[in-house]
C-alpha cells in the first residue's frame, strides 16, 4: 500500500468567530477555548474514520475558518 498523506485540520484564528459549528460536528477534532473560539485538538491530525467529519466541519463553518490539508 502506498503511504497516504496525513490529513490534518487547522483553524484560521483570524477568521474564527466562535460559531462553534466545528466543535459540534466533530468534537473529536475540535474544542472551544475559554472565549468560545475553536481550536484543534492535539496537532490536528485526523485519525482514520474521521475524514468525513473533518470535511463536514469545513463545509459547515460560516466563516471559512476550518482548513483541511493533506487531502
Amino acid at each position: 500500500m502506498t503511504e497516504a498523506r496525513q490529513l490534518r485540520v487547522a483553524i484560521a484564528a483570524d477568521r474564527c468567530q466562535g460559531h462553534n459549528r466545528c466543535c459540534l460536528v466533530a468534537p473529536e477534532l475540535f474544542e472551544a477555548d475559554d472565549e468560545g473560539n475553536a481550536r484543534v485538538r492535539g496537532d490536528g491530525s485526523v485519525p482514520a474514520g474521521l475524514e468525513a467529519k473533518a470535511k463536514r466541519a469545513v463545509a459547515n463553518c460560516p466563516e471559512h475558518a476550518v482548513r483541511l490539508t493533506g487531502a
Binding site: Q17, H19, R21, R56, A59, N60, C61, P62, E63
Partner: peptide, 12 residues
C-alpha cells in the same frame, strides 16, 4: 449535512 447558515450573523 452542509449548512453554513448565518442565523447568528457573520463576522465580528
Amino acid at each position: 449535512e452542509v449548512n453554513p447558515h448565518a442565523a447568528f450573523g457573520l463576522g465580528r
